[in-house]
């Protein structure tokens, strides 16, 4: 059994769909962190079967929106003195700029580099965003 100690003060990102933890880890820049960080992959989960977890021993500020765009079902637990003092469920924003990149090779954003990648939420239930320029659909957790 893998044992990772609980953290005293910091943040635990829980219920990450297995396989997406590493993407979140790099997106948050945790590979460059100078404080204790743990990425747990494929942990057993009653709800998900398998899940990833990220534990951060530091009260960092980060963009919750960005986490929602990778996996909207994560739970963010804020820890103080080894207790959860706050739980956050990130919500999908209506409008995102320069967080998602358009993957359509024919989209104008692939050549006009000064143009921001702008996406608008079109279906909250399915987590679908649409590129402002070419209408390409980005599905959260799949793309």
């Amino acid at each position: 059994m893998l044992t990772i100690t609980s953290i005293k003060n910091g943040i635990v990102i829980d219920h990450i769909r297995a396989g997406l933890g590493i993407r979140m880890f790099y997106q948050l820049g945790l590979d460059k962190a100078d404080y204790s960080v743990a990425l747990i992959m494929n942990a057993a989960s009653t709800r998900l079967g398998r899940k990833d977890i990220i534990k951060i021993e530091n009260n960092v500020d980060f963009d919750v929106t960005m986490l929602a765009l990778i996996d909207p079902n994560v739970t963010i637990n804020v820890i103080e003195d080894e207790h959860i003092v706050h739980k956050v469920k990130p919500d999908l924003p209506d409008h995102v700029e320069d967080i998602i990149k358009c993957k359509n090779p024919r989209c104008v954003t692939s050549v006009e580099k000064y143009v921001p990648h702008v996406f608008t939420l079109v279906n909250r239930e399915l987590g679908q965003y649409r590129c402002q320029y070419c209408d390409e659909i980005y599905t959260v957790g799949k793309d």
């Binding site: 359509n104 024919r106 989209c107 104008v108 954003t109 692939s110 050549v111 006009e112 143009v115 590129c131 402002q132 320029y133 070419c134 209408d135």
Partner: peptide, 10 residues
Amino acid sequence: RHPKEGAPRI
């Protein structure tokens, strides 16, 4: 007219 999609919007 432009080969890239969304160019007229820019």
